[in-house]
Simulated scan of single mutants.
Amino acid sequence: MIKCYGGAPKPEKHYIRRPGAYAILLRDGEMLVTRQAAPVPEIQLPGGGIDKGEHPITALHREVMEETGWRMALLFRFGTFRRFTFMPEYDIWAEKVCTIYVGRPTLRMSDPTEPGHEALWLQPQLAADALGNPGDRAMLKRFLSKTCDSRQ
């Protein structure tokens, strides 16, 4: 069973399943995240929806480039969570199935090409507190706790 964050679905709403791929991107002790300006300013793990017929890894690379302007090297798949939310940019209620990968930013190509996004570098612990949705926060904190445990 996939852990759910951010509250139970509202029984009166119809949810559309939206699979997505997101990345924990670490380099030189910092973490690359994206700040999305609208509809509400929010710090997020870079990533997003997987288009119909698109492979999840292809979607991840595309979304990271669009939201940060960086290319990335994929290291491994870390986990998956669900959240039920309203997506005002699409005017839908969505069951987001979020798969989290770990990678490393490799080359800055440009500014973010997706409107309203800004690439930010944060200390991982600061990012864990700043991320805008509870699923992203929980996954990053879990990853950081495992990383710290393995260094001891």
Rank of each mutant, 00 (worst) to 15 (best):
M1A: 13
M1F: 15
I2N: 09
C4T: 12
G7I: 00
P9S: 02
K10V: 12
H14T: 14
R17K: 13
P19H: 03
A21M: 06
Y22G: 05
L25Y: 02
R27G: 05
Q36F: 07
A38R: 03
P39W: 01
I43A: 06
Q44E: 14
Q44K: 09
I50M: 08
P56Q: 08
I57R: 07
T58A: 06
A59K: 05
L60M: 01
R62E: 06
M65H: 14
E66G: 02
R71N: 14
M72I: 10
T80P: 00
T80K: 03
F81V: 09
T85W: 13
F86C: 05
F86N: 05
M87W: 15
Y90P: 00
I92F: 10
A94Q: 04
K96W: 15
V97T: 10
V97A: 06
C98Y: 00
Y101K: 02
R104P: 00
P105Q: 07
T106F: 10
S110A: 07
P112F: 10
P115N: 03
L120D: 07
W121S: 01
A127R: 00
A128W: 06
D129E: 15
N133W: 01
P134W: 11
P134Y: 09
G135K: 00
D136T: 06
L140N: 07
R142Q: 15
T147W: 15
T147F: 15
R151L: 12
R151W: 06
